[in-house]
Design a protein around this nucleic acid. Structure first.
Lengths: 166, 166
DNA sequence: GCAAAATAATTGACAATGCATCAGTTGTAA
DNA sequence: TTACAACTGATGCATTGTCAATTATTTTGC
């Protein structure tokens, strides 16, 4: 049990979190999204746009946990499907402004109540105060990881003479 | 707020769960797994094998939330890397028995304490009793979705006590 | 026992993804 | 100003994942 070289998956938070995310996404995706030709990633982009219109792609990427290059192509697909528009941002010429189209908004509005039903099915039997604890902890945990010192750029920085050459 | 056609993502459980899963996987994957040539999916397979050796691929698929065909290719890669072995099951000739190799076990044993560190960093500031609530709720939620009537085809049977929770 | 259905794993064709990189734009500091 | 760094988005390429068969084996119903 306390063996540091064994991992009890049933008590390991990343595992518990991942499988819950996977099973909700799988069921909602197959049953509610696939009939509309949408993937989970597309749904996530659209639902973010529904709550905060007019986002830059890099913000969408951060909000949806989707890689920026993946998101660029994803938006291209959504534009082709007529669900969002991509225009040059007014503020800056290197940014784009992604918005829901009328068709896209209509689709999200139809899907949101269904998404709520899946959420309700998921949390059935969870007392309200415990659900509040869960949500608050998940927000805290995300913040913990988000603010972790990134060993990527911090410790692997190139020596000065290499930076000059790069 | 109570608008049924808007979704407050900061209060929407699937969103909260997904971003937590994504950020932990991203950081652990890049910092701890990538140096060993492992992906998150590979890690999940190996850690499941570490707690329950000798699994069929279909069981591994269920335990890791990885598609069976994806898992087949994944195991092929792990075999090529010398981390697991794949032999025909003794019990049935259509089944396959996947096990960690000595090299694979050594690697998991080295990674498990690191995985615990990431978990510890994630849950920093979460009181023990709240963490217990979170884990218990996540298990319940998973069970809820697992036992949901599948509109697809065959309805999976569950023991009565699980059904009551749904 | 035997045909039919179910199960386990695999494969082919195709789509999606991620990394590295590039191009264009904006911010900054000498 | 001007050069340089940082930012934003897009793309080439290889890897990876998914869906729909396909093969092989086992179980089930008659």
């Amino acid at each position: 049990m306390g063996n540091p070289f064994k991992l009890d998956l049933g008590d390991y938070l990343p595992y518990l979190v991942n499988r819950v995310g996977a099973i909700i996404a799988e069921q909602f995706g197959e049953e509610a999204l696939a009939p509309h030709g949408l993937s989970i990633a597309m749904w996530r982009v659209m639902v973010v746009l529904a709550s905060e219109a007019n986002q830059r792609q890099i913000d969408l990427a951060a909000l949806t946990s989707i890689d920026a290059s993946t998101l660029s192509r994803l938006v291209t697909r959504l534009v082709r499907m007529g669900l969002v528009t991509r225009t040059r941002s007014a503020r800056s010429n290197r940014e784009v402004a992604v918005k829901l189209s009328a068709k896209g908004r209509a689709l999200v509005v139809r899907l949101i109540p269904i998404a709520r039903e899946y959420e309700a099915a998921a949390i059935a039997g969870v007392p309200a105060e415990e659900l509040a604890v869960v949500k608050r902890c998940l927000r805290l945990i995300y913040g913990n990881m988000k603010s972790r010192p990134a060993p990527k750029s911090g410790s692997q920085q190139l020596p000065p003479h290499d930076r000059l050459l790069a």
